[in-house]
Design a protein around this nucleic acid. Sequence first.
DNA 1: AGTAGTATGACGATCAAG
DNA 2: CTTGATCGTCATACTACT
Length: 584
Amino acid sequence: MDGDTSGVEGDNWNTDDELEIDNFSLSSNSSLTLPNGEALACSGEASSSAGSSNSKLIDHFIGMGFSEKMVAKAIQENGKENTDSILETLLTYSALESSPHGQQHIDSDHCSLECEGSFLDDFSDIDSFSDEEITNPVSDEEGKLSSLVKMGYTMDEASIAIERCGLDSSLVELTDFITAAQMAKVADVHFPLEDKPIPNHSFKKRKHFDYEMWKRKKQRGLEKRLLHDDDEEIIRLPNPMIGFGVPNDLCQTIHRTLPEAAIGPPFFYYENVALAPKGVWTTISRFLYDVEPEFVDSKYFCAAARKRGYVHNLPIEDRFPLVPLPPSTISEAFPLTKKWWPSWDPRTKLNCLQTCVGSAKLTERIRKAIEDYDGEPPQHVQKYVLDECRKWNLVWVGRNKVAPLEPDEVEKLLGFPTNHTRGGGISRTDRFKSLGNSFQVDTVAYHLSVLKAMFPNGINLLSLFSGIGGAEVALHRLGIPLKNVVSVEISEVNRNIVRSWWEQTNQRGNLIDLPDVQQLNGDRLEELMGSFGGFDLVVGGSPCNNLAGSNRLHRDGLEGKESSLFYDFFRILDLVKCIMNKTQ
DNA sequence: AGTAGTATGACGATCAAG
DNA sequence: CTTGATCGTCATACTACT
């Protein structure tokens, strides 16, 4: 999808229940932060974990060297009965925590235990709370966002609060807003309480706690470097990157057992770049019900590499590939290049298709560099040319002539129909951008193929961050009828592409497109699902802007401006799950 | 001259694999 | 250790129009 997701317009919120929050006074926090209010707000499980009956259990684990916050979260997740799984969770957390990127995500989870005590602490010094104390924010907004996340709120909640309250509002105002929103949500029967424990509002204490935590983690990180890191829970990429199997793979007898919480309905399928900063996939996996990601390189499906991670709860037996099988090498995909391909260019597969392509000037420079020599150019020229060709995915189109791929060639490689992104007022630049952000259809279709036997009459699909409709095209090419498709995509050109494809392929189903995942709330989902009886599949690849290696400027990880929309994928999936369970 | 859309090049770090 | 890959962003110059 496109990068700009910040266009939240207040007008569109009129139907949202959150709007009612405006009626709350932002400055008066007393009534909202009373322990009574918390007890009312928390689910049974969450509030009981804060009770005194657990103190022995907590002390037990604290005695083992785990932090109070961790123990509370682990108990909350596993229940107080199952001490074994609590211990296992704690061990996992402590491993995660020692990773440089993983540590901040522990903080981003909620914990109701910190509610204990000091409710009556005054907040008078809260405004002196300096963001820079903990993080090094680039802007005021990011600083506030980051602070809120560290205080235990979701990225989603934090950004909405800033949108609604304004950038110059204090942290107290922002946290009050979120609390009020959560209060309002509690009234909504469909709000998944167990996954959104109400954060406490003992600001002073939490601030202090977090700061101490941060110092401790920093310290531990230093210690860690001196020790072995063999117990790191960092997810490793498989080599070869074939996930749970690719077509023509001989050993396809892999079985897996999904965690209980991950089992559908609905089925879900999440995608993002495999080479994300350390700890990102651990966090993604943890949020998506602890499902182990499947890392696959699309070079096993087509002539271009595309290293991606997929988290899904689909069966992995009896998969089958799309037919016809796409060309597997560059020369098969583009036969005309064979004639001009020099023997000293060993490439048979293209690298990852990106959002930008090489310039005409660059190909000109390359031509001139080779032209000076009669036969084979010297080593250093070969090296230069090959480096540029690999970096920009250039192919040989004439004597001494290289060129970037054309948009229709990229469409072909990615498994889309030719001219899928063409016309309708879409520029060449935008085509490359949309295609570069898309799925490789054959790869995704292989994973989704198991649905065909299960849903002979078709499926209802929720497609988040749809882009140019990679999931829709994959399902269609598999011959799985699309009954109702709700497609959420911020970019208007992309929505037009999907709409136009939908009409051209004579779909019998119903396509509903929405612009913004952030505005898709429980009410709207319930309304949509009520009309056709729930979703069979939720698909989405959230923005990779802040995860991708090509991003020199803002590779900020999952908390980055765009990539944090992952949490909206989780939020919405969890809402769908909740509603589905309720109506069954 | 103003404007909107387009093309170009400068901008390294991170992480895995050999 | 070195090599290689990587769903990118930004300011600026350029182009094709009014």
